[in-house]
């Protein structure tokens, strides 16, 4: 019995230490988590606070205002919204089919050695700093598109207003292509993870029924991943909507709503970044905060939409990650 009391005492001391250790560790990690929670709220608060002056001056009509006049102190967001929508849409139109094809190549077609190499190379594309991609965009891609691609589009499809303007080395078109390059690796990597989780029995069943590989992909892999693909595209969209630096470099900074893709424009993000050399008035700075607030709302909404789809999808396909 003596030994029992001895270990009891020993365990008593240890129990206190363990109790304390557990508390401290939980306290510290929970504190860090609270900081993350608070941070997102603080970011929203601070941006709205900064936008307050512009909000009270222009109200909601800021959103459809088209001016950016530092002399008259009148500002509006519409050209930026338009530019953001057009460049992102164009990026998605180019990137989505490409990314899905890449993901299919990596998940269904490529032998494992090639898969590793090609997969890493595609991920490297996402690792290139955006400012480097923008530099390449303005000095290499822009002139190339202006000399070779845009004139061709203009002469063959020039009757459509989108392809109507004079080809130029910087503008919405170049920005759309650059954003597509950024969106491809994101969409591709999400899609690839999706395709890998398709139950192999279903794929094999389709093949056993005599389907060709493509019919199997269309009927099983793509059909069962549709919501996930949508979520992947929205994630790519989120990236394209918010990219500031590379777009600022290639888009040419012109605040107006023009039909042509070839003329300079601006997006919400690129207008903010383009004003880094300093704004003239408090109202102008506040208007930049207003643009950032719009961007924040769009960013949160796209993110939530993607999450919602993924969550629903996770129920639909248990076992998928």
């Amino acid at each position: 019995m003596a030994t029992v009391t001895a270990t009891g005492e020993l365990r008593g001391g240890r129990r206190l230490r363990d109790w304390l250790g557990d508390r401290i560790l939980i306290f510290v990690t929970a504190g860090a988590s609270l900081v993350a929670l608070g941070l997102i709220a603080f970011i929203a608060y601070k941006i709205l606070r900064g936008a307050h002056l512009a909000l009270s001056t222009f109200g909601i009509s800021f959103i459809w205002g088209t001016a950016w006049d530092t002399n008259k102190n009148v500002f509006g967001a519409l050209p930026g919204l338009y530019g953001t929508a057009v460049t992102s849409l164009m990026a998605l139109l180019i990137a989505t089919p490409l990314a899905i094809a890449i993901a299919l190549f990596l998940s269904e077609l490529a032998p494992s050695g090639i898969r590793l190499v090609v997969g890493s190379l595609v991920e490297m594309l996402a690792a290139i700093p955006t400012v480097v991609l923008g530099l390449w965009g303005i000095l290499v891609l822009g002139p190339f598109l202006a000399d070779h691609v845009e004139p061709w589009l203009h002469s063959t499809l020039g009757f459509i207003p989108l392809f109507g303007g004079q080809p130029g080395a910087s503008g919405i078109f170049v920005a759309g292509v650059i954003l597509a390059i950024m969106a491809v690796p994101i969409i591709a990597s999400v899609c690839r993870e999706l395709f890998v989780t398709v139950p192999p029995e279903q794929e094999e069943a389709a093949l056993a029924l005599g389907a060709t590989r493509w019919e199997m992909v269309r009927g099983v892999v793509l059909a069962s991943s549709r919501p996930g693909i949508a979520a992947a595209v929205i994630l790519g969209l989120g990236r394209a909507l918010g990219e500031a630096i590379a777009v600022t470099q290639v888009i040419g900074a012109a605040w107006g709503v023009k039909w042509s893709l070839f003329v300079p424009g601006d997006t919400l993000a690129s207008r903010i970044a383009g004003q880094y050399q300093g704004a003239v008035s408090k109202l102008q700075i506040s208007s930049l905060f207003y643009l950032a607030a719009i961007l924040l709302v769009i960013g949160v909404v796209t993110n939530l939409a993607a999450q919602l789809i993924v969550r629903r999808f996770a129920y639909a396909r248990p076992g998928g990650s």
């Binding site: 941006i47 909507l241 903010i272 950032a292 924040l296």
Partner: peptide, 10 residues
């Protein structure tokens, strides 16, 4: 998912 320019403005 936050655009980095929003972080910059913040």
């Amino acid at each position: 998912g936050l655009p980095s320019i929003v972080i910059g403005v913040f």
